[in-house]
Amino acid sequence: MTHTRTSPATSAPTPTTPPAAPTPAASSVPARAVRGPAPYLVPALLAVGLTMYGPLLAVTALSLFDFNLTTQTPRWVGADNYREVFASPETGTALRNTVAYMATILPLSVLAPGLAAIAVWRFGGRLTGFYRTVFFLPVLIPPAVGAVMWQWIFNPVLGIADAPLELLGLGPVSWLTQPVSAFVAVTIVAGWKVFGLSFILFTAGLTAIDANVMAAARLDRAGEWQLLRHIVVPLLRPVTTVVVFATVVFVGPWTFGVIDVLTQGGPAGATSNVYYLLYQLGFGYVDGGPASALSVLITVGFGAVVAAQMRLSGRRAGR
């Protein structure tokens, strides 16, 4: 595939066109021409080494020490930090919440925007631009700012967030005080934020669908439904993979800002996630050892999920 196409040029330092004899031009390559891949590659490798893999090794090492991030000399404690993290009920709650956020936000970030994108694509008409603008809006509003806006909506005095519930016959809810409703509130705001990104990605996927294919199918008297099922949905599969991937990547950092503004992880940890717990351990309690241990565990877990996802989508693409 892609590698073979590059082969003619890859034998540089003195680039040649393989079948032809060296041309005069080839020998007149300026002396200052770059002679190997190193100068191109080293900056990026240095960057990821210094700010990604280096810190990863550092935090792994630090997870075996007790330290307060600054003044104390680190003290070797072996696996104690891991034991502490595993023993703490907060870790379990945060982990469960992280998974639960993923599970509740995925429909808001995959299913709903997918359907919305298809609807706009098929029926948008003159309102297409309007929908695209409005749906994309929250992507540009930073999570903590969006959370502040929503906090005002969840305010029980105005009761605005209760109005839809009262239509369903459900009483007023003190949104941010009760564990379940606080979790729902964070999910709503995070979903509000990711919806637009997925919508645009799906729209991108839909525009790539060849109009001719659709026209041909329609000539075959395929109904709207059949078009959707047999042509559109299968063609959207690669985009869906990207959307799921983007959700997994963004949901953690974006819910962090929402949690910090709305609930600070409460009530009793009901809305905390692993990143928020990490922030509390490391920077609220300056308890560096357990924080580092948690970092390592998060990285292992996250890496495993993403790797599994890549493998899965790779297999599907290869089929």
């Binding site: 700010t51 990604m52 280096g54 580092s292 970092s295 890549m310």
Partner: peptide, 20 residues
């Protein structure tokens, strides 16, 4: 090495980043 950075969640590295 470059694409593998997708496997590391940046927020998990706040402690070493902060120290650095």
């Amino acid at each position: 090495a470059l694409v593998g950075t997708a496997l590391v969640p940046q927020p998990a590295l706040i402690v070493p980043h902060y120290l650095m």
